[in-house]
Design a protein around this nucleic acid. Structure first.
Lengths: 343, 343
DNA sequence: TAATCAACTGGAAACGATTCCATGAAAAAG
DNA sequence: CTTTTTCATGGAATCGTTTCCAGTTGATTA
């Protein structure tokens, strides 16, 4: 770590034999500067290794070129690709990303929005989990633009933020897939829970008749629930020929356990999960799943936020829905390559 | 998004009937201010909803309260917990974290270090992958302190950065574990590769005699290599009774394939991986592995960096080694709970 | 009571950029 | 060859803090 004294715009100006205003024009390549002078200044900048003080710029132009990304927990399976996607999109536009983990705790989600100014950012992308009471209210009084990545609750239309979400077709797509491959006794494994109960509803709605013996409600959407569901289904006289898992963790638990107790996937039972999280490709068989389009959703959320920042706009907030996408893998359709992995 | 005019320190001063210097003292609770005045000021701050301009503070005190974290790719299995750990540690000290993905590309690692000033941070934590030629040189001329999370090359001792790494005992620990549970025909699966060839060396050094038929070198450290290794080992007249996998991805590929071809893990073959990445717990059986201590390593790297920033120190750079830790799971030792998952 | 001293306090000068505005030179128009 | 217009240019003000330094006040001491 070396420590030369800071080179300022004034040093550059002196070296180039021009005024500081001119140097500024060269840096920001604004108009009103001749090509010749500009070259001279750029030359001086190069020689001195001058880098403008971002603090000073920020103070003056009231922009930080930073956005914040608040997610529940970067360690959650579906989050890293979102963080990655946001960072890529932001970088393209010259923005840096400050990462915040809210732990899905309402209090922290609240603080993040309320004290967004303390983050020194021009905007905020938030993926809420807790959806605290006053969520919309806080968003609406935020001093900086906000984009919401909404995988949870329906948000009231009066929210002053761009919202990117999924059309709630994940469940239907998974079910249609299982039906389309000729399965007739399709089971459900998951948990009842308000935020994503749509996934169970989709199950019910996709069937003309629900056989309640084929519904397994565990406590949560975990590996464990999947494993227990597998045991349960195996114990039935009349086993299902397919399982629609409420999410991928359940699907993984299910498949692992099925393999242990001699149920073949997909021959005996086809399995389809939801989320298309990163784990779906490391299991064997790899798991068919419905993608929640994390990369696309978060990229758009970023683009919308940056656009709003750039335009300094406050009107006409966007609300975009992505279609989930079915990714067929080995857990529902027998494939040739069952031993080796692609990529 | 609302837009009141910015409340400045002057507004506060006026409201509280004091000078701006006094307000500043109250904010930073510096000395030289009476309790009474301070209360008055704090009251005014509260009423006006004043939040100091970070840009102005940064400009004046030459600190940003931000650090950057440069990792290869947040989507890599072992990275999220590092990012999480860094963020937690930083937050405790009032620092924000700017995340950078280098993609493990040397050019980007170089740029990140060289242009660290453009990141508007007080320090940098970098987890290099490419280790470009001039890595040390660039680090040494960085204008801000750097901490290196070093899972790769040995770094020359003249590097002007705190370095946190692992004692290179991962391989030995995995091998000792397999030996200690009574396995005698221990195989190796992985790839030859300079950075972590130590892992293969550990294999050789842990054995009095190396049976070359038990060494499988694939092209990389991937699931695929693991799957192919499984096929290879199965094809042997005299199968190994344990496999030491060069990393967890190989171990996963190995185990998945073993299950498919009727080799029981751990009964027939015990498997131990390295990295203790997050996938090890979602497979069945869960995988025994040697932890590279990502959380601890990165937390310390963060603490050291912040300490150096705070002390404005340039001398006596730390070089800390962590001991890897063996995590025994189901792939090496038969356990009761093979169906359900803990946590 | 006067002198000394400590503790508060506020004005003003930074910090390092951007940008308005006035100025001068050069180019275009008459 | 003037007069007008255009274009570059630099000086100075400004962004919102922190902090030096000098001044005020009230308490302590002789």
């Amino acid at each position: 770590m070396s420590n030369k004294a800071k080179v300022t715009i004034e040093d550059v100006a002196e070296k180039a034999g021009v005024g500081i205003a001119t140097v500024s024009r060269a840096i920001n390549n604004s108009s009103g500067i001749s090509g010749k002078t500009k070259a001279k200044v750029l030359q001086a900048i190069e020689e001195l290794g001058f880098i403008p003080s971002i603090a000073a710029q920020s103070l003056k132009i009231r922009k930080t070129n930073q956005i914040a990304l608040a997610v529940p927990d970067i360690r959650n399976a579906f989050v890293p690709e979102i963080a990655w996607s946001v960072e890529q999109a932001a970088k393209q536009h010259g923005y840096r990303v400050v990462n915040i983990n809210t732990s899905g705790i309402g209090r922290i989600e609240i603080e993040t929005i309320r004290d967004v100014k303390k983050l020194h950012v021009d905007g905020l992308i938030i993926l809420p989990l807790a959806y605290p009471q006053n969520f919309v209210e806080l968003v609406n009084k935020s001093p900086v633009p906000i984009s919401v990545i909404n995988y949870g609750k329906k948000l009231t239309p009066d929210i002053k933020a761009d919202v990117v979400c999924l059309s709630q077709q994940e469940g239907r797509m998974a079910m249609e897939h299982l039906i389309s491959i000729g399965r007739t006794r399709i089971a459900y494994a998951g948990a009842p829970r308000d935020i994503i109960e749509e996934r169970y509803n989709a199950y019910v709605n996709s069937l003309s008749h629900v056989d309640v013996s084929l519904v397994y409600f565990g406590e949560d959407f975990s590996l464990n629930t999947g494993a227990k569901a597998a045991d349960y289904f195996k114990s039935l006289k009349n086993m299902p020929d397919a399982v629609y898992a409420g999410n991928d963790m359940v699907a993984i638990g299910l498949i692992n356990r099925f393999k242990e107790i001699g149920v073949r996937v997909p021959e005996d039972v086809a399995v389809c999960g939801i989320d298309n999280n990163i784990y779906t490709t490391i299991t064997s068989p790899q798991i068919s799943s419905v993608s929640i389009m994390g990369v696309e959703v978060s990229r758009l959320a970023t683009e919308l936020l940056l656009k709003r920042i750039r335009d300094n706009a406050t009107g006409v907030y966007e609300r975009v829905q992505f279609e989930p996408r079915l990714i067929v893998r080995e857990s529902s359709v027998k494939m040739k390559r069952s031993t080796t992995y692609l990529e």
